[in-house]
């Protein structure tokens, strides 16, 4: 077991994420295509499915915006390697940028200069977690800016509670319109604080689309919001239709009695993610994609 395994796995995940959508996302898009009633909306979904097919077949990036790179890393307390993991992820990012290739999307805002290799201050960004166990879980989550620019966070008044949240979600979706490349996946989180709501909203986007929310109240809220969002008629790519969102995912944290933060994370239809489990003996299992 060496650090090389982590670097190699991270590289593979970046390539898989950029070129092949996870099966749950493909299935949701297919279902949307089959049931879309607007002619223009259906044509957009047809192009999307064809694009997904071509990208997978030719091993090309699905979208030219290969995103800002972030990783979610869960390390078991008994996993043999702790040292040099961040550096390995940076090396994997540089290599993926060159070899997949990915578009260089890291601009230093002080110099206003593109670093050229998708790395730089705090980029790639890594979310760390330690758990009791002997393996490591690695998720590559590259996210494009079209949908990222439409994400919103508000510190709402606790006076309105869930009603305030629902209104904020709908208003955010209406303002976004066709810009975030619908049909989108909407991640909503409330409570905690500024960072906690945003973190949880983003994290809900990692949940497979075919996995129901284990909290019944949240599952109900997800359905209710999805139905309402799709009633707006914004449709695929904002050209009209019944599929504005594929899914809504909701999470929450306990809130301060005097606060009600709500974050809405919008994910474009090209919902790219790839996950793997690295065992203590160095063997790797890919969780989102078939490999080999």
């Amino acid at each position: 077991m060496s650090i090389q395994v982590i670097e190699e796995t991270a590289f593979n995940l970046l390539k898989l994420a950029a070129t092949i959508l996870p099966p749950d996302v493909k299935e949701a898009l297919r279902r949307a295509y089959e049931t879309e009633t607007s002619e223009m909306g259906k044509a957009q979904l047809e192009a999307i499915l064809e694009n997904v097919r071509v990208a997978e077949e030719k091993q090309l990036p699905i979208c030219q915006d290969t995103g800002v790179i972030s990783f979610y890393v869960r390390i078991g307390s008994d996993f043999p390697i702790r040292k040099g993991i961040y550096e390995a992820l940076v090396r994997a990012t540089r290599r993926a940028t060159k070899e997949v290739p990915l578009r260089p999307n890291a601009v230093d805002p002080i110099q206003e200069r593109n670093t050229g290799d998708n790395t730089g201050r705090h980029i790639p960004y890594v979310h760390w977690e330690i758990f009791d166990g002997d393996y490591m879980e690695l998720i590559a989550f590259p996210k494009g800016v079209g949908s990222e620019n439409m994400c919103k966070l508000a510190m709402l008044s606790p006076a309105h509670r869930l009603k305030g949240l629902k209104k904020f979600v709908i208003d955010t979706i209406l303002e976004a319109g066709g810009k975030p490349c619908p049909p989108v996946i909407v991640g909503v989180a409330f409570g905690g604080g500024l960072d906690i709501a945003a973190e949880l909203a983003k994290r809900t986007l990692l949940r497979p689309l075919d996995r129901p929310n284990p909290v019944p109240e949240l599952a109900k809220l997800e359905e209710e919001l999805l139905k309402a969002i799709n009633e707006t008629g914004i449709g695929p790519m904002g050209l009209g239709g019944r599929w504005t969102a594929l899914r809504v995912h909701v999470d929450y944290a306990c809130r301060h009695p005097g606060g009600y933060p709500v974050a809405v994370a919008i994910q474009c239809w090209a919902a790219r993610r790839a996950a793997a489990r690295i065992n203590a003996d160095g063997s790797v299992e890919y969780l989102t994609h078939k490999v080999g």
Partner: peptide, 23 residues
């Protein structure tokens, strides 16, 4: 502008969407 038409239509439907959510 087709986008303005879709936005106007979505805005028109807003009341109905709010009602679905009990707002």
């Amino acid at each position: 502008n087709f986008h303005e038409r879709i936005s106007a239509e979505a805005e028109r439907r807003k009341t109905q969407v709010y009602e679905m959510l009990g707002l």
